[in-house]
Design a protein around this nucleic acid. Sequence first.
DNA 1: GTGAAAGCGCTAACAT
DNA 2: ATGTTAGCGCTTTCAC
Lengths: 347, 347
Amino acid sequence: MAATLHDVARLAGVSIKTVSNVIHEYPHIRPATRARVEQAIAELGYTPNLTARSLRSGRTGAIALAVPELGLSYFAELAAAVIEAAEEAGVVVLVEQTGGDRDRELELLRSPRLKMTDGLIFSPLGMGQDDVDRLEVPYPLVVLGERIFDGPADHVTMRNVEAARAATEYLLASGRRRIAIIGAHEGEVIGSAGLRLRGYREALDAAGVAYDESIIGHTTLWHRSNGARCMRELLDRGAEFDAVFGLNDTLALGAMRVLQESGRRVPEDVAVVGFDDLDEAGYSIPSLTTVDPGQAWIARTAVSTLMERIADPDAAGPPRLLLADFRIVERESAPADRLAPAAVPTR
Amino acid sequence: MAATLHDVARLAGVSIKTVSNVIHEYPHIRPATRARVEQAIAELGYTPNLTARSLRSGRTGAIALAVPELGLSYFAELAAAVIEAAEEAGVVVLVEQTGGDRDRELELLRSPRLKMTDGLIFSPLGMGQDDVDRLEVPYPLVVLGERIFDGPADHVTMRNVEAARAATEYLLASGRRRIAIIGAHEGEVIGSAGLRLRGYREALDAAGVAYDESIIGHTTLWHRSNGARCMRELLDRGAEFDAVFGLNDTLALGAMRVLQESGRRVPEDVAVVGFDDLDEAGYSIPSLTTVDPGQAWIARTAVSTLMERIADPDAAGPPRLLLADFRIVERESAPADRLAPAAVPTR
DNA sequence: GTGAAAGCGCTAACAT
DNA sequence: ATGTTAGCGCTTTCAC
């Protein structure tokens, strides 16, 4: 049905090699020949069959991105940034959702469907450090997130401990002393929750503030609804606090909502800080002070690192750990100075 | 490098056809042979080369989804639903972002990169009715959204006019009379903005309420920031209104934010209604009354319709228009009864 | 400057 | 029940 190189060659009265030369802009072609070929291509509406090209070249021009769920704004924004960076690099992106489920993640790593792509950017959520061997795969792989460290693949991620510590120090500096946590994972050591909680504790320790288990709210998936539920539980059990550190923005926003429903004023009674700097953090009431963990850089770096590995699969080199810079974004929910409202809301 | 059918066949001491038979679970294979082949497959870690399979079969097992931007929550949620539905149908999804730019949309439709997929689910934003011919493409195509009607491809979308009319009637029924609009597109007839505005006007007309250009806020891209800006402009020019209909949730949330900054109470002074029923609509302060336009159904239907066309490209049949059901989701920003607050916030 | 031909890894028709 | 073989459409080496 669709025209092939042969069809074009026949119509132009040349061989397929010549057509191929024209398509690949091989320099030494007689102008007349080139014109005839181009004419034939236009006439037939020829477009190369990329599957055939892939089979021959061993490259598909596609990469895969596996995230837990696009419904989670953090991953939607990550995917947007990855797709954009990939486009600049001339490749397309196949997006998979794992649901943060370990079995699906492991299955995905072994999936032959990946054969349709040149490499994978993988953001696991269900797998843990024990699964580190499973990252030994026969294709270029870049790992994101904080579920697994020191694996056999390049790893691009954020400075969770330092950033969470900075966020906590920010709250302490503004005069808060009882900082509740929303989103802790029971017993987790690594993982976003574990690392951010560690940063939190480091900041408390450094400031000589006691860690109080009673104001640590636990939840599993970082959905908005869980942030709300988690805050409700804290309030129900009579926890007292003057600040809340949501381990991500979605949790913080869900929690802030419940906080205000309960009659507490933000930031007057309770300051709230999130983590991620999602677009919507600038538009909540009040707008959310948060940590910008460098997601844009992470996306760009993940793509460029993967593309390097794809280009040069032999030049193995040791796996790299690449860490993004972060910064605190001050907004209304937690002004730097407890007494003064944030000067101008950052958008 | 990676093992091929030949490698497996050699190791198992059979022909590639036998290996192929085992892989495809062809029934008549001697158990001993099957065992030997399976053993060889495991030993070599063989996984089929999908590119080769695609070239041979003419199917890639992938579909493409083109949306303006995953950073827009509506499209993130759409993509999530499409990927999920696609997975159930056994295909993977390649996601492209067009930025809502007409040229990029047109280019994408012609792009040979689509040769890597079996079909396309396309949500245009820059193209208009004049470009309807460009949807005549040599591969299965399902169009979403409201930029183009009566095209040559199947079209899955929502009942914009009816839903917007229902939303407006809802506000009128609750006693509001001056309903401002956020997000109108100058002179647009079709398109989400144009259709929803039409529903709005129909409701006004039916109720005998005059249409007042001075409370129609215009903007282009439906970003949160534009909703905020648009509301600021309305307020700056002294517009007076007792309700706001944001033509989508993102706009409504941005607008609601500005409204409250200006000291107005929602819903007491101004009721706010959105459109889309995004996840976050349930967690704003106040939570957002909105229209659930049936996105989940749209995603499922788009995938199943596309899969049908892929399975049977000849059984052309006339292009179909498939419309989702909608419903008003009552939350706090616009209670059904102006005087009574919404009973229980819907989560 | 252009052509002929091999082969990427797989499927399926045909043969045994 | 299993083997042989001809392509799918392209790239690329090697001739001419």
